[in-house]
C-alpha cells in the first residue's frame, strides 16, 4: 500500500517550530499570541510522524521571525520544540527553547488568595524560575511554587 503523505510546502522566510509534542500546536500559537487575524500565512500540522517523538506537531509561520524571548516561552508546554529561522528557503538559525528566568502575564497563579487573582486589581502575574531541573516556578506575589507539569493548566485563558 502506498504511504499517504501530508505535504506542506517549504516557506521562503519566517519561523518553523518543529518537534512540538503532539497535540500542543494550538497552545504554541496561543503562547505566541498568534490568532490568525495578523495575516501571516501559517501552517499548523498536528500529529504527524516523527522519528524522535513518534508523533509531533509543527507550526510554520511565514514572514515572521520569532525572537528568542518569544520562543523561550514555549518551553512551558513544549520543552522539546526546536526553532528554525528561515531565509531564502534556507535555515539560517536553529535553536532550542530554554525556559526564561521570569515569566510575566502568561500564567495564572493557582493560589485563590493571591492578590493577582483579585478581579478588582489590574495586576500582571509574574513568576520567577527557582529551579530548572525539575522545573519549578514561584509566584512573585504570593510565593506559591508550581512545578513544570502544572504549567499547562495555568496558562492564562
Amino acid at each position: 500500500m502506498k504511504e499517504e503523505r501530508l505535504t506542506v510546502s517549504k516557506i521562503r522566510s519566517g519561523t518553523v517550530i518543529d518537534h512540538i509534542p503532539a497535540g500542543k500546536a494550538l497552545h504554541v500559537l496561543r503562547i505566541l499570541g498568534i490568532t490568525g487575524s495578523e495575516g501571516y500565512r501559517t501552517a499548523v500540522l498536528m500529529n504527524v510522524e516523527s522519528r524522535k517523538l513518534g508523533r509531533k506537531d509543527i507550526v510554520k509561520i511565514e514572514h515572521k521571525k520569532l525572537g528568542e524571548d518569544e520562543t523561550n516561552l514555549l518551553a512551558l508546554i513544549a520543552p522539546t520544540a526546536t526553532i528554525n529561522i528561515v531565509e531564502g528557503y534556507e535555515i539560517v538559525e536553529k535553536r532550542r527553547v530554554r525556559i526564561p528566568e521570569r515569566i510575566r502575564r502568561l500564567l495564572t497563579c493557582p493560589n485563590p488568595t493571591c492578590i493577582t487573582r483579585s478581579s478588582r486589581e489590574d495586576v500582571v502575574t509574574s513568576f520567577k524560575l527557582v529551579s530548572r531541573d525539575p522545573v519549578i516556578l514561584q509566584c512573585e506575589y504570593c510565593g506559591t511554587m508550581v512545578r513544570g507539569e502544572e504549567l499547562e493548566n495555568l496558562l492564562t485563558k
Binding site: T113, C114, I115, S118, V123, E140, Y141, C142, G143
Partner: peptide, 25 residues
C-alpha cells in the same frame, strides 16, 4: 487578606509601604 497585597501596594506607592500582614504570607 490576600497574599502579595503589600508587594502590589509597594509597586503602586511612591512612599514606603510597610507590610502589616498579607494573608498567610
Amino acid at each position: 487578606r490576600y497574599e502579595g497585597a503589600a508587594k502590589l501596594a509597594a509597586e503602586v506607592a511612591e512612599n514606603p509601604v510597610i507590610n502589616g500582614g498579607d494573608g498567610r504570607q
